[in-house]
Design a protein around this nucleic acid. Sequence first.
DNA 1: AGGACTGTTCCGCG
DNA 2: GCGCGGAACAGTCC
Length: 259
Amino acid sequence: MPELPEVEIMRRNVDAWGAGRHLVRFVPKDPKWQDLVVPPGPIRGTFRRGKALVWNIGDHSLLLHFRMTGKIVQWHEERRYTRACFELSDGMTLAFVDQRRFADLLVMSPVELQRYLEGKKWGPEPWPDPLPPEWWVNRFGNLKMAVKPALMRADCVVGIGNILASEICHAAGVHPERRCSTLTSEDWLRLSGCVVPLIDRVIDTESGPEIAYVNQGGGGSMFSVYGRSRKGCLRCGVGVVQQIRQSGRSTYLCPNCQK
DNA sequence: AGGACTGTTCCGCG
DNA sequence: GCGCGGAACAGTCC
């Protein structure tokens, strides 16, 4: 489910919930993680790399990747799809919830984690500091593939998933099927300029103790094109939002303002 | 019943 | 070797 903004929200939540506490006990709830050992220890903090959340506890680094349906929430009562629980001091318990059981939870030493992340060959972070227009031109300008699926390539830039990729093309007025190499420097200028404000807005709107799925109505209304098939374009007020398919994923666009 | 789904990796093809 | 598409992972929901 989560893209960069949602992972960042969960990072802030985990940071706040864990502050001043220590992990008392890790409790697997799913056979997938039955044998996973997370040693107890003082909670040291978090950072995010792309869509991955790193949680440092004691001498270990936990890497959480939520894939399609994972999320971490405060435990209040038993709920479906809980795959593991983190029991913290002072009666705080966090639940790792994941409907489709795609998510990853890895325990490593900080050195192993560093090696793991380097091995990923991921591109730079597009947020909070904007990547300059020239960077986008250099990284994408020679690719023959369509711009929307290109934006989702973690080896180019991290954190952008299927929703943000449609939203970015829309905000920049760029047709998602345009080949990267056909975009002008003005296109890249608009594109680079809309990324940080867009991510800021998603974080502001969605911040809270639990991130919500678009199709559950939570946060869904905040997007300008994603999921708005056959509705009027909120950008130009003229076009009707169209849904197409690109490399197996849904893309939404306004044929009037995205050329 | 069939298809879709906010991710990532791997495989095979040209 | 690269660029690209499709499959696979898994489980539900519409």
